[in-house]
């Protein structure tokens, strides 16, 4: 494989921002004397994904990871920042509309297998939708054959094309969802919590399937999840989000063995211990603050054991470190204790 091609990022996200106006209606604001309220769901996120790798975004609910996913596939338009896909900025809706060829090369897999398939369509029609819409194949016979191939590819029977979504279990529906995503022959898949609604044994099937497909079709994944163990299993690189910002990203091994940001450490600490080593989870004080009214400075400072005055006032910049980058004053100042060596790692 040529080095230049492999190292070329397929997606570059730069300073991505998305604000939502959640103010009360104008009349209520005037009568009740309230200000506009803006949620900064995504507030300056930058990362890039190389061709063929899996980049994961983790974080707790409300951290903005799903919003990033939806910004990238164009379900939302960004407030600011650029989304370069194969070198072309397709952030603004007008630009995206000008490049249907680029849009066609990305697809999305959703979280809820019960809501992501139109209940009134046959599975065959659901999978054929991208083929028909983009006129990849004209002949109905060819389409039926292709749908059959796709169904076999995701481990279902070609005969399932005639069934309706409600005849399938959650895991099987997620397979249909993947088949639909593959029907448009994409190179880049955005997977928004694809297994969090599934049982563990089914989750294993889906994760295995996704890995097989990646190897076979050379797919690139952006994987959104709150489950660190799943992320550890699937990713090459991992980014950690907190209140709309990317606080740390690194190669998977580095991030899990030597987490720098206190929030990343907290997340790792909170993972239940299945190996029964007797390690107790370290419960972290406090909860995620409301994104409507985020703390000043580093938004993690109220929960951070290492916070000082600077953390309360100054937003830390993202600084490159070996194998990744981190946004933390304590790391920059070198006042962070080393991460304890874990028995498991």
């Amino acid at each position: 494989m040529q080095k230049s091609d492999a190292d070329q990022p397929i997606l570059q996200v730069e300073g991505l921002r998305r604000y939502f106006d959640v103010s009360a209606p104008w009349l209520n604001r005037v009568l009740e004397g309230k200000d506009r309220s803006i949620v900064r769901a995504v507030d300056g996120v930058s990362f890039e994904i190389k061709r063929g790798e899996t980049f994961s975004l983790v974080g707790e609910s409300g951290c903005g990871k799903s919003t990033v996913a939806r910004l990238i596939v164009g379900l939302y338009g960004p407030t600011a920042g650029s989304i370069r896909f194969e070198g072309t900025d397709i952030g603004p809706s007008a630009e995206r509309a000008r490049h249907p060829d680029l849009q066609a090369r990305m697809q999305m897999i959703f979280q809820d297998p019960y809501a992501s398939l139109n209940p009134r369509w046959r599975v065959g029609d659901i999978i054929a939708e991208p083929i028909r819409f983009r006129k990849l194949l004209k002949d109905e016979k060819q389409i039926a054959q292709r749908v059959g191939e796709l169904l076999s590819q995701v481990g279902l029977s070609p005969l399932d094309a005639r069934k309706y979504p409600h005849e399938f279990s959650g895991g099987q529906r997620q397979r249909v969802s993947i088949a639909r995503a593959l029907a448009g022959e994409p190179e880049f898949l955005v997977c928004d919590e694809p297994t969090s609604a599934l049982d563990v044994s089914v989750q294993a099937q889906i994760l295995n399937l996704m890995k097989d497909l990646q190897r076979r079709l050379g797919l690139t994944y952006l994987f959104i999840s709150h489950n660190l163990a799943v992320v550890y299993h699937v990713s090459d690189k991992v980014g950690v989000m907190y209140l709309g910002r990317l606080v740390e990203w690194a190669d998977k091994k580095i991030l899990f063995q030597r987490p720098l940001h206190p929030y990343t450490r907290m997340l790792l600490d909170a993972i239940p211990d299945l190996d029964m080593t007797g390690r107790q989870r370290t419960p972290v004080a406090g909860e995620v603050p409301s994104p409507l009214n985020p703390p000043s400075g580093c938004s993690f400072h109220p929960r951070c054991p290492f916070a000082n005055e600077r953390c309360k006032s100054e937003i830390p910049a993202v600084r490159a470190v070996e194998g990744g980058a981190v946004a933390c004053h304590a790391v920059e100042e070198g006042r962070l204790p080393p991460w304890k060596i874990q028995a498991a790692a």
Partner: peptide, 26 residues
Amino acid sequence: NKEYVQAARVIGMPAALIVLRHVLPN
């Protein structure tokens, strides 16, 4: 806001078609 409508949007389908084919029957 259901995900099957969003899936159609990601394919690049125009709004009018989504409304007629996906939303209306449901």
